[in-house]
Design a protein around this nucleic acid. Structure first.
Length: 580
RNA sequence: GUCCAUGUAGCUCAGCUGGAUAGAGUACGUGCCUCCGGAGCACGGGGUCGCAGGUUCGAAUCCUGUCAUGGACGCCA
């Protein structure tokens, strides 16, 4: 539960506040209500380790120049017992604070003592959060979008877990509806074509080889002339045969990808246990439904209007959006996907009690986001508890050119194809290199390269190097638990201090990553930490530093840095090598 | 047509709840191992932050407009 940077920021806030108060009491500042001010980490460390804009934002209230205010605050600040050893004013009136050895010592001990739990906080206060991701169509193999979704969703879930939420990972299996019908039609056509090559294949059917293979395997078990003249029976039998195989295929692939779900949720169960009917009844009771042209419609536009109003849009702006309603039950009597989706979220919120639900979707579904939230309002749930992470498409690049098809199969590249070519560590790391909303290029050449410019190896190498340093210390008889002989006042180079500050910001970084729903912050943090370690390593000798206490202190720093890199890689689901 | 996302170094991208001189990687050029792992480090050139206005002490960041690219607007999922 340790968060050195956050604690220091809280102390800085109190420090400045108290200094302003005592400046008022001594007359160097007029008495006035103190405004809200920021404590931030400056980009440039010559501007201090923490900085505040207090003087600038209070200039109006005090009727004084920012620099004069800053000076008064600095003069009245009592650094005794704080993590800071120096306070300065600079620029237009920034108040800059500099960490002292007590802070550096605190950070190293936190990381060493925290171990694999360092970075964990209670920020989320145990709220129940569900992350639903991938949820690939079970009628075929997973594509690259599913691959990115898998890496992003899994790491996001880990980040939320470390940020103090109670997290569940879920895969939603769309095992009913139109695409299953298409699946059955396609399977039946391929099956009939075994004996009757002229049998027509549905125009919008699934053309993949996997369909043909299922049909062939089914024929081997059941003969080639099952249910003659009764295609409906045949389709059901084929779906019953092929769907479970596809679903276990999805599980195997996700397993291989290092993703373990807590729940595999079947869409069809919402029909079986009556949730869909129940939700329809609630909507009916709420007056949200109407019939038109033989279909049952949800008055989505009404709830969307309320939603947009609550977001501050004017009626005029809303009219321009030309809001539309949605069909929930078609005139043929079947429910639409939207109906079961509302039921599904009713299940998540009402029946399972999640405080927050996060769905990771491809950006092409963005049009569905507000409609779904509005529909939750219509069933009496709170749509604002649902967050959608939209991720852009990925483009594979080889030799600087876009790759769309697999050389081997001639079809779109699947997750399985990708995992055959690229190590899992690299796939998971690369898919979390950019924030979800950015459209990015996956460089196949770079990902398989076991060399310096590959960012995965760069980070892993830093870890292996730290392990190597510690091994060398062990053979020289030094203790390497990181607890003995730490004296942070000996760690005086900028390289040492920069690395320690980075380590101290790790828990805050996880919280930011969780708040922004941006797991790519972890890969960037890991890369930055690796860089700072390499710099430290280049400048500072650990083993033969010339002074036993210095060696022990640097050893502790290595242990702390190693722990942070290891924790990052663990969150990312990437292996943590001690030797490469 | 309406809505959403994205435009930052040659290339791939950070920074965006307003802060100090706009960063990293890569590519290109030059250095650094008798010494804990050179899969590393250092130095150098490279920019009208798409464009134009506005808001203010201060704008890559907020607002308005505009251009470009991708996407969404189904009794599909």
């Amino acid at each position: 539960m340790l968060n050195p940077q956050k604690e220091a920021m809280d102390i800085a806030r109190r420090l400045i506040n108290d200094a302003a108060v005592s400046a008022s009491e001594s007359g160097s500042l007029p008495s006035a209500e103190l405004p809200d001010f920021n404590i931030e980490v400056p980009g440039d460390s010559s501007h201090g380790d923490l900085a505040s804009n207090f003087a600038m934002v209070s200039a109006r209230a005090f009727h004084m120049s920012p620099r004069a205010i800053a000076q008064a605050v600095a003069d009245n600040a009592d650094l005794e017992g704080t993590p800071f050893e120096k306070i300065e004013i600079a620029g237009p009136g920034f108040i800059n604070l500099f960490y002292g050895p007590q802070y550096y010592s605190e950070v190293i001990s936190s990381a060493v003592d925290g171990g694999s739990d360092y970075g964990r906080t209670d920020h989320g206060s145990g709220k129940k959060v569900q992350v639903e991701f991938v949820s690939a169509n079970p009628t075929g193999p997973m594509h690259l979008g599913n691959a990115r979704g898998g890496a992003i969703g899994d790491v996001l879930a880990s980040v939320l877990d470390r940020a103090g939420y109670e997290v569940e990972r879920e895969f939603y299996i769309n095992d009913t509806g139109n695409q299953i019908k298409k699946f059955g039609d396609s399977l039946a056509a391929r099956y009939r074509q075994i004996t009757d090559p002229a049998y027509p294949f549905p125009e919008d059917g699934y053309k993949g080889d996997d369909i043909t293979e299922h049909a062939r395997a089914f024929a081997e078990l059941n003969g080639t002339d099952l249910y003659p003249g009764d295609d409906e029976k045949l389709k059901n039998a084929l779906v019953d045969y092929a769907l479970p195989r596809n679903i276990s295929g999805l599980r195997e692939t996700m397993d291989r990808y290092g993703v373990t779900y807590d729940v595999w949720f079947r869409e069809s169960s919402l029909y079986e246990d009556g949730t869909v009917d129940k939700v329809m009844a609630i909507l009916e009771k709420n007056g949200a439904l109407y019939e038109k042209e033989g279909a049952v419609w949800l008055n989505t536009s009404r709830y969307l209007r309320d939603l947009y109003r609550s977001q501050g849009k004017t009626d005029e702006e809303i009219d321009k959006l030309e809001l539309k309603d949605d069909v929930l039950r078609r005139s043929n009597g079947f429910y639409t996907y939207f109906a079961s989706d509302i039921a599904y979220h009713y299940n998540k919120f009402f029946m399972r009690g999640f405080d927050r639900v996060i769905n990771v979707w491809g950006a092409d579904h963005h049009g569905h986001v507000n409609r779904l939230k509005a529909s939750l309002d219509a069933v009496g749930l709170d749509g604002s508890k649902l967050d959608i992470v939209l991720m852009q498409l990925v483009e594979l690049v080889r030799n600087g050119e876009a790759v769309r098809m697999s050389k081997r199969t001639g079809k779109a590249i699947t997750l399985t194809d990708l995992l055959e070519e690229v190590p899992i560590d690299a796939v998971r790391f690369f898919f979390n290199l950019r924030e979800p909303s950015s459209h990015f290029e996956f460089d196949l050449d770079l990902a398989v390269k076991q060399e310096k410019d590959n960012p995965v190896y760069y980070v892993q190498y830093a870890h292996a190097r730290m392990c190597s340093v510690l091994r060398a210390l062990v053979s020289d008889g030094y203790p390497v638990d990181g607890r003995e002989g730490l004296d942070a006042s000996l760690l005086t180079t900028e390289e040492e201090k920069a690395l320690i500050r980075k380590i101290g910001s790790f828990p805050s970084e996880i919280i930011s990553s969780a708040r922004e729903y941006d797991p790519s912050r972890i890969t960037r943090f890991a890369t930055d930490t690796a860089t700072l370690f390499h710099r430290f390593y280049t400048v500072c000798r650990v083993k033969d530093s010339g002074d036993r206490n210095l060696t022990l202190s640097r050893t502790a720093l290595c242990v702390a840095a190693k722990q942070v890199i290891a924790n990052c890689l663990t969150i990312l689901g990437v292996s943590v090598p001690e030797i490469m």
